[in-house]
Amino acid sequence: MTAITTAYPATWRRPPFIADGRLRWALIAGAVAYFVLAIGGLEINWVRIGEGLERGWRFVAAFARPDFLSRWDDIALGMQESLTMALTSTAVGILLSVPIGIGAARNLVPRPVYLVCRAIVAGARSFQEIIIAIFFVAMVGFGPFAGFLTLSLSTIGFLGKLLAEDIEDIDEAQAEAIRATGGSWLQLVNYGIQPQVMPRLIGLSLYRLDINFRESAVVGIVGAGGIGATLNTALDRYEFDSAAAILLLIIAIVMLCEYGSSLVRRRIQ
């Protein structure tokens, strides 16, 4: 028995994730070098942070006693703009993204239509909402209308892409069955495609409503209306208790949205 025992190794190392030793060490060294450079290059002004921490603490403390009242008119207007902007842009976005999404599905439309619709979707997705908002503000002036345009465009990008992918992933057999009955293209979409993608489209739309509300808080920073502008002003004036009130409102509404959409989604599925 002892003779056999000695035959077995007494050490074992886990095989490394990257088998090539040199590549592994090069990657590790590269990562370490990057982090040293990046963190070393940070210019940290400790005096400023010292002052800031005190201010930060005041801000945290403000959450314990948020001030909804003294700027209530501004807050109410901002919220009204944000909410209306979110709802209308979601509605318009859905209406436009359905045809564009169908057009961007390779298995349904001729190639030129596909390419055009794909280009629209890709274009709508390529930039941050805030950058798009800057341009819309420059084009139509300050106010929630610019925000509405921004959010509609990004809704098209978001829903159009996901809808197109969904349609491309459908069960071909069901569409085939409708084609076999001699149905027209519209009947095909209505009977072969719609039932398959509808539940997810509704779920995604609700999710997008939620995103649009959150984004509507941001576009205000560049003048496109909504609660973001109010928040920006409050912070500029160091009115932390009003800012805390606004943030709490945003969080509450987002939570409400998520809860509501989870309820609706459970009912559809």
Partner: peptide, 25 residues
């Protein structure tokens, strides 16, 4: 993953017993 040598030996021996000594890694 640095187990005592006798544990590793024991593991090898047991794997051999159940016929899997070639599948360790």
């Amino acid at each position: 993953r640095r187990f005592p040598p006798e544990d590793v030996t024991k593991a090898y021996r047991t794997l051999d017993r159940v016929g899997l000594i070639d599948h360790v890694d």
